[in-house]
Computed example of a mutant assay.
Amino acid sequence: MAAPLICIDSRYVRRRPSGIGEVVRALIDHAPALAPDVRFLLLKHPDTQARLSAAPNVTERVVRAAANGPATMWWLARATDLTGVDLFHAPANIQPAGLAMPVVTTIHDVMWLTHPHWAARPGWRGRVDRAFYAHGIRRALRASPRIATVSAATRDAIATIDPRAADRMRITRSGVAPAFHPPAAGVVSPRGERRYVLTVGQAAPYKNHRAALDAFAVAFADRNDVDHVFVQRQGAGAAALLAQAAALGLTGRVQVMTAVGRDELIALYGHALALCHPSLIEGFGNPLAEAMACGCPVVTSDVSAMPEVTGGAALLAGPCDVPAIAAALRRVADEPRLAAMLRERGLRRAAELSWHAFAAANVAIYREVLGR
C-alpha cells in the first residue's frame, strides 16, 4: 500500500513576514519528521527560491496563484495538479472549492464573520475582502471533515457561530521558535540608553494601534525618557500614527519601523520596557509568545485569545480602556519587582508553547482524517 500523500499549502512562507507564515513554517519544519510514513507535497510561493524542507518524504511545487486569491478559492485544482493527493491542508482560513480529497482547514479567527470592519481595507476592496473571506470560512465550517484552530478562544467562537462544527474542531495551539530568547548579558539595546514601549503587528484596525499610542501618551506624556516603537510588519500606517503622535505632543518620541529582520525584532523585544498589545481580537497573537520568550513584560487585552496565550504572565486590560492600559504600562515602568515577575512568568509560559507540539497536533488530525 502506497504511503498517503498530504498536500500542505505553504505559499504564506515568503519574504514578507506574516503570522500565518510563521505558523506554516513551523508546521513544515516538524511534520515530515513526525510522520515519516507519509509523503508531503508543499505548494510554495514563487518568491521562495530555497527549498522549504530537506526531509526525504517532501516534494515541492511552485504555484503562482495567490494563496488567498480567486484561483485558490475556486480553481485550485486547475492551477496545479493535485492528482494522487489523499488530504489537503488549507492553513489560511479559507477552504478551496472543488477539491476531490478531504480538506483540513486551519481557521485562525472568525473576525471576517463577526467583525469584518476590523480587518478589511477601506472602500470597495474592503467589501470584496469581506465577501471573499466569509465565503471561504463558511465553506470550511460546512465541509471540512476537521477544522484546526490555534486557540481555544477561536474554537469557542466558531462553536457559537456554527454549533454543527463543534465536533469537527481540534485545537492546534501555536508556539514560539527557539530563536526568540532573552538577550545575553552585556548586549547593548538597539535603542541605546532610551527606554521604550514596543508594539508589534500589522497596521489593521483590529490591532488597535491608535489605542496603544493613546495609552502611551497617558502613561508617559510627562516623562520624556520613554519612547514608543511600533513594528508594523505588513502595513502602511506610519503616517497616521506619526500624525497622531504629533497631535498628542509626542513628536520625536514615536518611531514606526516597517522592515525589521528577525534578529532585530528579537533584540527589540529583549530590551523593551514592555510589549503593549491591546488587540481587539486574535486567533493566537504571535507577538505575545515572542515577547514572553525574550523576557519582555507584556501588557495585553483581556479578551479573545490574549489571556489564554499569556496564561497569567501578563497584565490585562480592556482593549478600549485607555486609562487601564496606561496604568498597566506605568506600573511596569515604575515597579521593578512587578516587571521582574512578569519576565519570569513570561519565560515559563513561553516554554510551554511548542511548535513541535503544534505540528504533532496537526499530524494527529491528518491521521484521524485518513483513518490511520
Rank of each mutant, 00 (worst) to 15 (best):
A211I: 05
N286D: 00
R146G: 06
D225W: 13
V299M: 08
P205K: 07
G346A: 13
A305L: 02
R173F: 00
G312T: 00
L141K: 01
S354P: 08
L241Y: 11
F216W: 14
A50R: 15
R372S: 14
R195P: 07
T72C: 11
A177S: 15
A359M: 11
A340G: 13
V369L: 12
E368K: 11
A100Q: 14
L315V: 01
A359C: 11
D81Y: 03
T48F: 09
A35L: 11
H30E: 13
I94Q: 07
L250G: 03
R170I: 10
R173W: 00
R14I: 05
G235Q: 08
Y196R: 05
R210M: 08
T154C: 14
F132D: 09
A339T: 03
A238L: 04
H135M: 13
R170M: 06
C7V: 12
F220M: 04
I137R: 04
V110E: 01
P91D: 05
S279L: 06
A66W: 12
M341H: 13
V332W: 00
E282Y: 07
R139H: 13
W112I: 09
S301V: 05
A203I: 11
A152M: 08
E22W: 02
A357V: 10
V176I: 03
D47M: 12
A360P: 00
A3H: 07
V256D: 03
R170A: 12
H181T: 14
M101W: 07
L265N: 02
P91Y: 07
V256P: 02
Q202T: 15
A324W: 02
H89E: 04
A239M: 01
P190Q: 05
P178V: 10
N93A: 13
G261W: 04
A221M: 01
I28Y: 02
P145Q: 09
V63N: 08
P46I: 12
H356C: 11
L52Q: 10
A328V: 03
T172A: 14
A203H: 14
A272V: 02
E22M: 11
A66F: 10
E308N: 04
R127S: 13
D86W: 05
L288V: 07
Y133D: 02
A153N: 05
H209N: 13
A361L: 04
A305H: 07
G19N: 07
A317E: 02
A314D: 00
R345I: 00
R155H: 04
R223C: 09
H271A: 07
P297C: 03
R349G: 00
Q49I: 12
H30T: 09
L250E: 05
A203D: 14
F230T: 04
